[in-house]
């Protein structure tokens, strides 16, 4: 087997300050790119809006998890106390949402949390063991003191010259091609 020939997959631009990367993100967003991302050593206030990110969809997973938990709690207690093994406790009805509520409520919270965590991993594609960006030496600085923008070649607006020009115009200290 011959080793695969590295193919270019996109452009990586390095920025020196948080303000630079914020403005670069605005520039890339306004240029209409879709397949790109920003890498910073720490969260930057306002980056979501600068990148034009929409509201996260994790909330829907949370909601579905919560709804499942609540319904399951209610069903479980109904099934156990009324359907499967009817048992009178303290002269109370065999089933009422009242005493089923605390348990259902706890299950709502538990499954909401599961939904949130599961949904997050599903949407962000983690865990991911390999990323072509790891091949770039300077990218290690993304967890230290440098800021990066990566634009994929797969983006319909991508053109090696124009994209490079855009990134440099936005104040990049270096722009390089990433290969995989």
């Amino acid at each position: 087997m011959s080793a695969p020939v590295p193919q270019p997959i996109g452009l990586l631009a390095q920025y020196e300050t948080a303000a630079d990367i914020l403005h670069a993100a605005v520039a890339v967003r306004d240029a209409g790119y879709k397949k790109w991302d920003v890498f910073t050593p720490f969260p930057i206030h306002g980056m979501d809006d600068a990148m034009g990110l929409k509201k996260s969809k994790v909330g829907y997973f949370t909601f579905c998890g919560g709804l499942t938990g609540f319904s399951f709690g209610m069903w479980m207690i109904w099934f156990m106390n009324k359907a499967d093994y009817p048992l009178v406790v303290g002269g109370k009805p065999l089933f009422t949402p009242l005493f089923a509520f605390p348990v259902s409520y706890e299950l709502t919270i538990l499954l909401s949390a599961f939904g949130t965590i599961g949904g997050m991993f599903l949407l962000n594609g983690l865990p991911r063991l390999y990323n072509p960006l790891f091949n770039v030496k300077r990218f290690k600085k993304a967890s230290d003191d440098k800021f990066f923008v990566f634009i994929e070649m797969a983006d319909p607006k991508f053109s090696t010259e124009k994209t490079r020009e855009l990134l440099q115009h936005a104040g990049a200290s270096s722009v390089e091609v990433v290969e995989d």
């Binding site: 206030h45 306002g46 980056m47 809006d49 929409k54 509201k55």
Partner: peptide, 13 residues
């Protein structure tokens, strides 16, 4: 005063 992800513009600080 920015609130991220809420779908409205952020004023520069």
């Amino acid at each position: 005063h920015e609130v991220t992800g809420a779908g409205y513009a952020v004023e520069d600080t």
